[in-house]
Nucleic acid binder design. Structure first.
Length: 595
RNA sequence: GGUCCCGUAGCUCAGCUGGAUAGAGCAUCUCACUUCUAAUGAGACGGUCACAGGUUCGAAUCCUGUCGGGAUCACCA
């Protein structure tokens, strides 16, 4: 369906040609939504057109308005305020739009797969540390962006990279060997990721004790750190791992398995998933091979000590290490390997989108530049979806100070809050216990997801655990509640009223405003997809719902006596619910049928 | 020190091609439930858009500088 802006733009261009003898350029025809205090549906800003008309803004607007009225059938009236030409469209324009949208299941969505394949990476946690609030923002963001891109018409591949090798893994393995007494998730009742995290902490504690001991026996701090027996043992274990020592590999597999099980449980609760997992243990070798290639091409160089570097000073950056002097890979090496492997496995991939915190902006700038220098096709389209930290009132989360907000705990808390509120309201007495449990999660998790996604991703945001997350106002539950209202009405409506062949020739201001909002959805989706910004969808859906809520309070729907109007209002209710549900599902938020 | 991001109401945030009198939610205060689900609605209160210049018919938005906050510049990941 052709957008109103495009139609009007064409009309204005011919108008300027006929009236002023010179056609306006497309970008000179500027539109904006008419402000609520003025009559009209769409406003043309005529200032840029005065250059063609050589007349005052008012006269220019008047002339164009008159032309539009006689050349565009859907225009009903116009008024001019300073340089703003407000155009009122006929009610039939909006009613026929409403009827038209009701014939589309996926109103506003792009054709499936019409925009090519694209990859979105998110999550990618440290396997030694359980997921926390920051990961929740990351996962919800990445998952939502993937859904938005899919709705926009891309084929999306959701992936994560699992950092499953390196000295940090050996630390928790070693601590478990020393202090674990064979403890397993089954024997301890702990989630696997929590168990591994526990031994990672235990390692750190033992290590610190050994450093302190070393210092008291007269060593410097650096010496004490370097000679701490448990650290030496961890390094030895890494060496064994790289030599594929069977016992070490077996332990590695076992403990990683626990962690993955734990993460999977959390991902399941969060409602996110992945199409493909990449493991650094599989990709770092390709990274190392690529270093050789870069050396051959002269993109990299080797220093006397054997280390390999890339000189980016010509691009305003620094020199970057790619291989240590002992020949082992660093983070960057692995990421190069991973990126290349992905482009190989998914030929035609338009872009890779990395959902990673903004503290790694420099890393990704360097990564993309190196990929480009290596001549990897697609490198120039890679994007770092950089998001801000979630901070607490006292600042960043710090594990040392015990201020880390654990993802599992927070999710459980959200469901419990939803339960408490629901029980207080007592509207769910006839719902089964199983259904209630699902509902509390839908509402509680919905509140959390909406809370994290309604904010511009790149901004640092604040989370106050003491105030917890609201369920009223601009929140997920408020949106769900209004959706539930639409469902309740539609359940109660007579089948005979649920038709779209109603005939209405005028709309109330509230109805017109609501339909106009629904009309915006495709534009909002496009903006969200292009800017990788779910907050666009979140704030839009809130606007829709606020409009509906006000309308609902003021206008009878089922109780409207005129069957024609009743049917129209039911259509409006149904279409509002459809857009709200579609929008919230793009955020990964489920919509309950009742609450 | 270099580079990047941010600064809008008491608090949390919108404001995206530069446009009309800068908007929401929370908090505070009024009013409205025998009603299609009040997890609501209507209203009041609340702003030198950090500051100073500049560009423009027009700047919260673009440019420059200053101040304040954060990140980053590892043979860590």
């Amino acid at each position: 369906m052709q957008r109103i802006e495009d139609i009007l733009r064409a009309v204005v261009i011919t108008a300027t040609q006929e009236l002023f003898g010179q056609a306006a350029a497309g970008e000179q025809v500027q539109f904006q939504k008419t402000r609520k205090e003025f009559a009209g549906d769409i406003t043309i800003v005529v200032f840029p057109l005065t250059r063609l008309s050589k007349q005052s803004p008012e006269a220019t607007a008047e002339a164009i308005g008159t032309y539009i009225l006689s050349h565009f059938a859907s225009a009903d009236a116009f008024n001019v305020v300073k340089g703003f030409l407000n155009i009122e469209l006929k009610a039939s324009f909006w009613t026929s739009f409403l009827k038209d949208m009701s014939t589309h299941d996926k109103y506003g969505f792009g054709d499936k797969g019409s925009r090519g394949p694209i990859m979105v990476e998110y999550s990618s946690p440290n396997t030694n540390k359980p997921l926390h609030l920051g990961h929740l923002r990351n996962n919800f963001l990445g998952y939502s962006v993937a859904r938005i891109l899919e709705a926009y018409g891309h084929d999306v591949v959701k992936v994560q990279i699992i950092n499953d090798r390196g000295i940090h893994i050996c630390k928790s393995m070693l601590a478990w060997q020393r202090f674990g007494n064979g403890e397993t998730p089954a024997s301890s009742g702990l989630k696997g990721d929590k168990l591994a995290g526990k031994y990672y902490v235990a390692f750190d504690k033992a290590y610190k004790a050994e450093i302190a001991e070393g210092i008291t026996s007269g060593k410097s701090e650096d010496e004490a750190k370097a000679s701490a027996p448990i650290m030496l043992a961890a390094q030895e274990m890494l060496l064994k791992w790289e030599q594929k020592d069977p016992d070490t590999i077996a332990l590695w597999k076992t403990m990683n398995g626990w962690v993955y099980d734990g993460f999977d449980a959390t991902y399941h609760e969060m409602g996110v998933d992945f199409d493909k997992l990449y493991y650094e243990s599989d990709t770092y070798l390709l990274g190392k091979e690529t270093v050789d290639l870069g050396l051959e091409k002269g993109v990299f160089y080797r220093r006397e000590d054997g280390s390999v570097w890339c000189d980016l000073t010509g691009d305003g950056l620094d020199e970057k290490l790619l291989l240590r002097k002992d020949g082992t890979a660093v983070y960057m090496t692995q990421d190069i390997g991973t990126a290349i492997m992905r482009f190989r496995e998914y030929p035609g991939l338009l872009s890779q989108i990395y959902t990673v915190g903004n503290e790694q902006e420099y890393h990704f700038k360097v990564l993309f530049l190196i990929l480009k220098k290596l001549g990897i096709p697609g490198a120039e389209n890679c994007v770092h979806l950089s998001y801000g930290m979630v901070e607490l009132p006292e600042g960043k989360m710090k594990s040392r100070e015990g201020t880390v907000v654990d993802a599992d705990d927070l999710l459980a808390e959200m469901a419990a809050t939803a339960q408490a509120i629901a029980e207080e309201q007592g509207k769910l007495e006839d719902v089964s216990a199983d259904e209630k449990a699902v509902l509390y999660k839908t509402i509680g998790y919905g509140a959390l997801k909406y809370f994290l996604l309604k904010v511009d991703p790149r901004k640092t945001m604040l989370f106050d655990p003491k105030e917890s997350i609201d369920f009223i106002g601009n929140t997920g539950p408020f949106i769900q509640f209004n959706y539930v209202r639409t469902r309740a009405i539609l359940r109660k409506a007579d089948a005979a009223d649920l038709k779209v062949d109603w005939q209405i020739d005028n709309l109330s201001d509230a109805e017109r405003a609501l339909i106009k909002k629904l009309y915006e959805f495709p534009d909002v989706l496009a903006t969200a997809a292009q800017t990788l910004d779910p907050s666009q969808i979140a704030n839009y859906v809130y606007d829709v719902v606020k409009e509906y809520s006000s309308y609902y309070q003021a206008s009878p729907i089922l109780k409207e006596e005129d069957p024609n109007i009743r049917s129209m209002r039911l259509s409006l209710t149904e279409q509002t619910g459809k857009v709200v549900k579609a929008g919230m599902e793009l955020l990964g938020v489920g919509m309950p049928e009742r609450m």
